[in-house]
Design a protein around this nucleic acid. Structure first.
Lengths: 219, 219, 219, 219
DNA sequence: TATGAATGAGGGTTCATTCAT
DNA sequence: AATGAATGAACCCTCATTCAT
């Protein structure tokens, strides 16, 4: 379902990537704005500045092109997640991480991949699953690993670090993500984000800072 | 963009509501299963047991019909939110509320309204906004109001009760909602839900149970 | 692969047949002139005087429409074959039959079904087989049955009457059918047909008229 | 409509013929298998092992390439016809000829030129006409010439030798060619062919073996 | 009011052909 | 001469919408 880059499709001259990237860029814009069904190959071709036929030189069909977009998008986000600066003291690391995460989620540039993928997940479960694994699960794992170091350092008391990571990440979204995704409010400002993330951090630490009998992550 | 019930559209005989409701029911099933673009008026007519032409007697066009569905759906969910049993002690009320909320969100029966509306929110912002207001904001408000009573009763120490409500609700989703919506896992079991909600409750109370200097909801 | 007339497709009002026949007529003209691949649904719609969409109200797809044309055509030819006047003396009956058969085969009105079906038989074997059965085999069987009566009457001496029938029919085509089908000559005139068929008759009778040791139909 | 070999098209280096023949070979395979419309230039290029662009170096367009294929094919068949062993006694020569002819017609290897050309004859009459002249008419003429020698030798009594040749050839097809071309039966076995051809021979000789008043070829 | 036949614009896709390299 | 990337017209088919009944 996902376009395999390589010999399967697309020309192989030196400037392959130019046209290919051009198409991906146009398709990204159109798909993320209009969704899978709402986007038409004609529109995509126009946005990419190529002819409709050329799309099919590089991608087998609409599904493949969409798959490539999602894969690219999720790879980029996955990479971003790995760039998160997760060192040092929890009181510093958590807010930094949380802010970066929310900025990623509530990207003000047009078209939300997360929305588009959610939308299609029922009809194209692999796409949804793949995106979740590459973006969400990866990021949770990243934060979970950091939490684990803090547990081992005796700073935090957590039973299930990945679950706690997920709790923190969700908490950071409070009052921000849903209004944004439903278009009820514009993308949150850095200040809003900072405030919400700080509150989430305090909440999280109230629950998990090492203290006798203070582990709330399990029953 | 949303069908206004009344003189603008729809017949006015005695069994108006019958046909209209019949159509809404069919349209609901098809829209929530296939999304706005995936649903066709023919399919909807078949599901509703009426002719295609009849759809246009009651609704101006596909957009209007969709708007009516979303409005109905969100009104129903809003009502459900008001049925949440929010009395008594926080240690009891919060888990009950949280579980009901997650069950609502991660409805295992096919076709998620939340996904369908998210999907279209970029192209039809009023639809998204309306849904958010009627479902999410309402529920947050409901929980916020309850929290306020507890603050006034001296049980909790919270500055912004609606924001805290949102925090709790997001916390309850940890590890459940995103995998579900991305089709990475099946709908969570009641046991899973209970466990996650319990943890969220403990976290929430660790942060907000009334104690000197324990308010984390504001800077 | 063949359109089933009835509830499967097409509207069911009183003048069903009008539109349906209109479409079949247009499709017949275009298919038989241009062949299956050469014919476009747009062209057919134009020839039929309906919109492209309407074609799909009456027929599921291009294949079905083509199948319906071939079926109709072969049914008509099959009926014609049964109308052949096959009574009385062989010296009268055979030429009459042969002439009717060649007229049928070398129909001067535009578009030869036999050619169109031959053309597609490799890719749509059922279509070819069905046509052969309904048109050729039926006609051979018809003549074979007549020959049998003459054998039983002691007029002819034939071992395999259906094979002999096929021989006669092929003989009647000599110098007529192939040039016609390859567009090397126009459709033969009645006089040409009569001459060729008479010769075939004489040849046939020379071989099969009852006489001691005169059966040539088997080894 | 048919590519003229010479200055009009095609390069003139030493290995011209190599590439050209390579293309013709690939095109032959694809055209005869899929028909004119079913064959795509891309498929042909692949089958020929050259690039799509190269096809247009040697042939002006798809029509020209097809014309060249048919011309080549018909020339080859015409040559085959001239190789038919037509000497000696009619009782030997006729069956030999008939069998070779039917084997040629009912070629069991995929892709029948005769079908492909018939299919296109209405839209490209010159192609059909050319094929008929080069293949059918030539072969008829060849057999007709032989028959003439036998007439002159006093063995046969025939008025129109070419017509009689056509009669014999059609007779040989009885029960074989039409079922084969319509895909109603597989290609006939050598045994079936032999039997049918023998019967045709006996029939033919019954009609035309020299005897007082035995000429059936004219009125 | 309710129907469903009819429409035609637009969907994704293929392919003969061109042209810069 | 040979390539193959690029094109755009045309393909089959779907579907929101209209309208005569």
């Amino acid at each position: 379902m996902v376009a395999i880059p390589g010999p399967a499709h697309g020309p192989h001259s030196e400037d392959d990537c130019t046209k290919r990237r051009q198409i991906l860029e146009g398709a990204r814009a159109v798909f993320l704005e209009l969704g899978f069904d709402g986007a038409s190959m004609g529109e995509i071709a126009k946005a990419a500045g190529v002819s409709k036929g050329t799309l099919y030189v590089y991608f087998a069909d609409k599904n493949s092109l969409f798959g490539a977009i999602v894969e690219q998008e999720s790879r980029e986000l996955g990479i971003l997640a790995f760039d998160f600066d997760l060192d040092g003291e929890v009181g510093i690391a958590l807010p930094k991480f949380g802010q970066a995460y929310i900025r990623l989620l509530c990207n003000p540039r047009g078209g939300s991949a997360i929305r588009t993928v959610m939308a299609i997940a029922e009809r194209m479960p692999e796409i949804g699953r793949g995106y979740y694994q590459r973006v969400i699960a990866t990021t949770v794992g990243r934060l979970g690993a950091y939490l684990k170091t803090q547990v081992e350092a005796g700073v935090l008391t957590i039973d299930d670090c990945d679950f706690a990571a997920s709790q923190f990440m969700m908490c950071c979204q409070a009052s921000l993500f849903l209004p944004f995704i439903f278009q009820a409010t514009p993308a949150p400002s850095p200040e809003q984000i900072a405030k919400v993330v700080d509150s989430a951090t305090r909440m999280f630490l109230a629950a998990y800072l090492a203290a006798p009998g203070a582990d709330y992550s399990s029953s």
